[in-house]
Design a protein around this nucleic acid. Structure first.
Length: 483
DNA sequence: TTTCCGCACTTTTTT
DNA sequence: AGTGCGGAAA
């Protein structure tokens, strides 16, 4: 068969690869989802009667999108189970209830249900659970599990752990292996130890595993994701092949080069020839930083491009503003509001939702869709998987990126990857801003630029000075703060 | 039992 | 700065 037009050579190689397990390393903008979808679709016709495909996604949203794309490619819904690890495992538990030790009417507890345990304890327990560590001696753990059992609950981590126990039963695992002959896992760099163990049980007796992801975009270590599982793939699933997609079709070459420098000199191949622009801006304060961003957005939308004397054609939906901490959002939001620029925050609605099986299985209907007539404000984490022509990353400062404030310190390597994820969201324009003085959690901090900025070659960076301030009369800055 | 004041603490997020 | 919690007062 000849290579389809919508696949490049390495994508095509990954799509048609046959034989044992496959790990596809797919950097940002290399057509990861497209390639994976095509590979899944291609494996459908090889299924015999009664066989099916298991496709694991990172979120329910991703599952829905994958389902849509596969349907468009003509795959029958009955032949493919698409869902998160949690959705798949919950279905297993329900379908094989009699083989589990769970009560018939067990419910899945959501964080809002749980009371009497502090956040720190719950996070610790969750990390322990998702890492398969020894639990017996832990008093908190015992009390917590007793509490769950009294309420007929299992928690999100338990869905996976109970499924793992269930799969030790050959009467359950055997038929599953004969049914799911192909398993696909997206975002493999963000899987955890329990998920890895589940895969090891499912992938036997000729079942073929395809995992795809990018170790440089692993940003969920704080909740149990283990990037070393990605690097260990060949050991875990042997024999296997590793293929790499390195043609980037998202970012302008100069931006690609810059992000590669931040990520220790890796280099994706530029598939575009668009002209990029990377601007560094230092502001006096966090508020001045927010004003700079807001004014710049105003200029991009309505104004004239001074260099080309053409009308700049950006819509609000082309623009994203990213930051490390949600606490930083307030300043930008205020500045945008002041200029009357509509914006949206990519955060899940906080309303106390009934968490039913349907929600975990991704079948709840309502979902926040992004509005193309609004600027998007979100954390760097929330930006993963998205792309925008214009991206602002605010707070590119020493203590914020990498995060290292009193009481909160991120893993330096993971923080670097997070910054990389942010940079690689940008297609054409990337603005990296920082402030000299910042108010955060009621404290004033004197800030230095993020060390990540120094990793970008000077010839790729343009330094943009602050707008000329209108001469201020009346109360000085110190007095202004009273308002 | 309810309300109020002072103190401590503050990430990132999906299921 | 804002919130949530615990202890003390009502």
């Amino acid at each position: 068969m000849q290579r389809p037009d919508d696949l490049n050579e390495s994508q095509w190689q990954a799509v048609r690869h046959e034989g044992p397990h496959l790990l596809i390393t797919a950097g940002p903008g290399t057509g990861k989802t497209h390639t994976l979808t095509r590979r899944i679709a291609r494996s459908v016709p090889s299924l015999k009667s009664g066989e099916a495909i298991l496709a694991i996604t990172f979120t329910n949203k991703a599952a829905r999108q994958m389902q849509e794309r596969l349907t468009a490619l003509g795959a029958a819904r009955s032949q493919v189970f698409i869902g998160t690890f949690h959705a798949f495992c919950l279905k297993l538990l329900r379908d094989h209830l009699e083989h589990t030790g769970l009560p018939k009417d067990f419910k899945v507890a959501v964080p809002e249900d749980i009371s009497g345990f502090d956040k720190e304890t719950l996070e610790r327990i969750s990390l322990i659970k998702s890492s398969q560590l020894a639990l017996e001696g832990d008093g908190d753990f015992k009390a917590y599990q007793r509490y769950l059992r009294q309420n007929n609950w299992i928690d999100f981590d338990d869905i996976l752990r109970e499924a793992l126990i269930l799969l030790e039963d050959e009467a359950v695992a055997g038929p599953l292996r004969r049914r799911f002959r192909h398993i696909f896992v997206d975002e493999y760099q963000d899987s955890n130890i329990v998920q890895n163990a589940l895969l090891k049980i499912l992938v036997r007796d000729g079942v073929l595993l395809t995992a795809i992801g990018d170790a440089n975009q692993s940003i969920y270590g704080f909740r149990g994701s283990r990037v070393e599982l990605f690097r260990r793939f060949e050991k875990d699933f042997s024999p296997s092949t590793i293929l790499t997609l390195q043609d980037n079709y998202r970012s302008a070459p100069s931006l690609l080069k810059a992000s590669g420098q931040v990520m220790g000199g890796i280099q994706l191949l530029a598939g575009l020839e668009t002209e990029g622009k990377l601007v560094i801006h230092q502001a006096a304060t966090d508020r001045a930083e927010a004003d700079y961003v807001a004014h710049h957005i105003e200029k991009l939308i309505g104004g004239m491009d001074m260099n080309t004397s053409r009308r700049a054609v950006r819509s609000l939906g082309d623009i994203a503003v990213l930051y490390r901490l949600n606490a930083q959002r307030h300043a930008v939001a205020q500045a945008l509001e002041h200029l009357g620029i509509p914006f949206q925050t990519a955060q899940k609605p906080k309303k106390p939702q009934e968490y039913s099986d349907e929600a975990i299985l991704g079948q709840s209907e309502e979902e926040m869709e992004f509005n193309v007539e609004k600027v998007s404000l979100m954390s760097l984490h929330a930006a993963k998987g998205l792309e925008f022509p214009v991206v602002f990353i605010m707070g590119c400062e020493k203590n914020l990126l990498p995060l290292d404030l009193s009481g909160m310190k991120g893993d330096p390597e993971e923080e670097r990857r997070l910054f990389y994820v942010g940079m690689t969201r940008a297609k054409e324009h990337l603005f990296l801003t920082h402030a000299k003085r910042r108010q955060l959690f009621g404290r004033t901090m004197i800030q230095e630029p993020s060390p990540f900025l120094a990793d970008i070659a000077e010839d790729l960076k343009a330094y943009e000075a602050a707008r000329r301030q209108a001469p201020k009369k009346g109360p000085d800055a110190a007095q202004m703060k009273l308002f």
